[in-house]
């Protein structure tokens, strides 16, 4: 087993699937010779050829749309959008076509494609490089919306995404790309999609998060553990379709829930989870569901970036409010 960081795990999953499935092709800006601006596709063009690892001209609409055509024709395209800030020209293709090709044709044509994109704040990147638009895609029927929170999760979930028969939007947290390493067995084993992962078990409360914010959430859980308060920590991983059962099961045990995400609050995906708790778990709730989120503001440029991102302090304050509620 190798110690990989998250971006290396993405690379390993792509390489594994390129090697084992001749239908897999990669396309995107700067992904070939340059290996991607984050090096997620490093060495893949040299290894698998420029016909399967395509450097495209600068055109997100065409990248997403061409992937749909490739997928319908039996390929398994994995398209990269260089940053989620530049995914919007592709929205027409994703929303009007990728998500509904199967439905429109009653399964005659399908769209087994993956759209990968680095997302999130915290690396002092330029303007439009720090947003978290996962709720936008989780809102679209017919899509899967997946976000890994660690190298091993990235490896297994990306393999699952490529093998999935339907379109998957796969957001990679830039803040975690090189933050830490983990043992990753490059054995081609996929993780389940459509399932949350309980990454830590406890009895007093439930934390729910995904992507990079899982770091701060775990830090807060550590501090509470030092005070004798134990928490379930759930990594949502696949936001759509949502495995509400795992979250409900945890909250049935703990009665208190704090949801943490870095996207803006209004219409953020935390609201969907909170609604699910109210709809299906009201009787087990001992306190109002708390959300710790980015503010409803444009993600600030670097100098205020960390005033925007939920901090351990904010998560702890929400946890205490949930714990103290009588």
């Amino acid at each position: 087993m190798a110690e990989l960081n998250l971006v290396e795990a993405v690379n390993a999953a792509l390489a594994y699937e390129l090697a084992h499935d001749a239908c897999v092709v990669l396309l995107g800006e700067d992904i070939g010779v340059n290996g991607g601006v984050f090096r997620a596709t490093l060495g893949l063009q040299a290894r698998f050829g420029a016909e399967r690892v395509l450097d495209t001209p600068l055109a997100e609409t065409a990248i997403a749309g061409a992937a749909i055509g490739m997928a319908a024709e039996g390929l398994k395209p994995v398209a990269e959008i260089q940053f989620t800030g530049f995914i919007y020209p592709a929205l027409d293709q994703i929303v009007n076509h990728a998500s509904r090709l199967r439905h429109r044709t009653r399964g005659r044509l399908t769209c087994p494609m993956v759209l990968r994109s680095p997302y999130g704040a915290g690396i002092h990147a330029p303007e439009h490089h720090s947003e978290s638009p996962e709720a936008l895609f989780a809102h679209v029927p017919g899509l899967r919306m997946v976000i890994p929170s660690s190298p091993s999760r990235a490896y297994g979930l990306l393999l699952a995404a490529i093998r999935d028969p339907d379109p998957v939007i796969f957001f990679e947290p830039t803040r975690l790309y090189r933050l830490f390493r983990q043992e990753v067995d490059d054995n081609g084993a996929a993780l389940p999609l459509d399932a949350c992962f309980v990454v830590r078990e406890g009895g007093d409360m439930t934390f729910v998060s995904w992507g990079a914010m899982l770091r701060e959430t775990l830090d807060a859980a550590d501090i509470l553990a030092g005070e004798g308060v134990t928490a379930d920590v759930i990594d949502v991983a696949t936001l759509k379709p949502l495995d509400m059962a795992t979250i409900l099961e945890s909250v049935a045990k703990t009665g208190r829930c704090v949801i943490v995400h870095e996207a803006a609050r209004s219409g953020g995906f935390g609201a969907e989870i909170a609604a699910g708790l109210v709809e299906h778990g009201l009787s087990s709730l001992l306190a109002p569901v708390q959300r710790v989120t980015g503010y409803d503001v444009v993600v600030p440029l670097a100098r205020l970036e960390y005033q925007y991102l939920p901090s351990v302090e904010r998560i702890l304050a929400a946890a205490r409010a949930a714990l103290e509620f009588k």
Partner: peptide, 17 residues
Amino acid sequence: PQRDSALRFASPEDKRD
């Protein structure tokens, strides 16, 4: 309320920098 929260939790130093 969000603005108030931002001011309450504002950290003078960027700790995670």
